[in-house]
Design a protein around this nucleic acid. Structure first.
Lengths: 139, 139
DNA sequence: TATAATGATACTAATATAGTATCATTATAA
DNA sequence: TTATAATGATACTATATTAGTATCATTATA
């Protein structure tokens, strides 16, 4: 069971690096080399982040990517949503419902509560918070 | 992002039904019909539950499955472990580590805490608790 | 001893994830 | 004004995981 898949992982690493460039446009080719991520794959990821408003892109010579907003406005939850869809802890089990009355189903109640907790935690984790306290890429 | 996959889902439903049979052996064929799960698929799942000590099985005519322990000793966490492996919220992102010092990495700290919370919740959900309060299968 | 059950296990199908390739567009600078 | 260095769009392939099937062996019972 995996909370963060590879797309999201790469996105986080790339965003952390971009955030540290202080408004210097950084092209995919450079990022890919530094982060050891296959160039075309990273490119696809950054294109998606651009479409979804997390990054701004600049075409042509001297182009590249920049954060579209400040790191404290970029939430882990949103990145997970972009690449993996909404956090749903209970999809399958409740499709063909396990209990007759939603209100009194113990499982549903508890899984829903757990889901809320997870989502609110993910909402509280920002790119800024990842950059604090010396966190940095070292690969 | 999915906490409970189809194997685990079917396992829960089957176990709930078996639990209600009060020591009456129930064969896969019957369960499969009631739960509308493909027979050979459910069979595989019950065989695994048997191997892992959650169910006892009885071969031959009049055979079938029975809970190996009381419903308050069967934990959701164990079912997830059996079919989906250990709950790991952070695998991918920390493999090629994102921060140089585990102790001070904000992301790791928070995801670890979240993981602990999720696991302890799953440990507190038993088959018995799912059977309480009128919860029952209706498909 | 036929039969109704599980045990073991190998196989196939479908889906999701990961990664590649390529042509089009655009901005810059020599 | 044109070569070039960048992204945009998009279709494709490969791999892994999940879901499901098939089949033969074993065993207990009536």
């Amino acid at each position: 069971m995996q909370l963060i898949n590879r797309d999201t992982d790469y996105a986080i690493k790339a965003l952390m690096h971009i955030a540290k460039q202080n408004s210097e446009r950084i092209p995919v080719s450079e990022l890919a080399k530094i982060l050891e991520i296959p160039n075309p794959f990273l490119r696809k990821i950054l294109q998606i982040l651009n479409k979804r408003g997390v990054l701004n892109s600049y075409k042509g010579k001297g182009g590249g990517f920049l954060l579209a907003s400040s790191p404290d406005k970029i939430f882990l939850k949103d990145l997970i949503n972009i690449f993996q869809g909404p956090v749903k802890l209970n999809e399958c089990i409740f499709k063909k419902s396990i209990c007759p009355d939603i209100k009194i189903c113990a499982l549903r109640t508890r899984i829903d509560a757990l889901e809320k907790h997870v989502i609110s935690e993910l909402e509280s984790i920002t790119l800024a918070s990842l950059l604090e306290d010396g966190a940095s890429l070292h690969s």
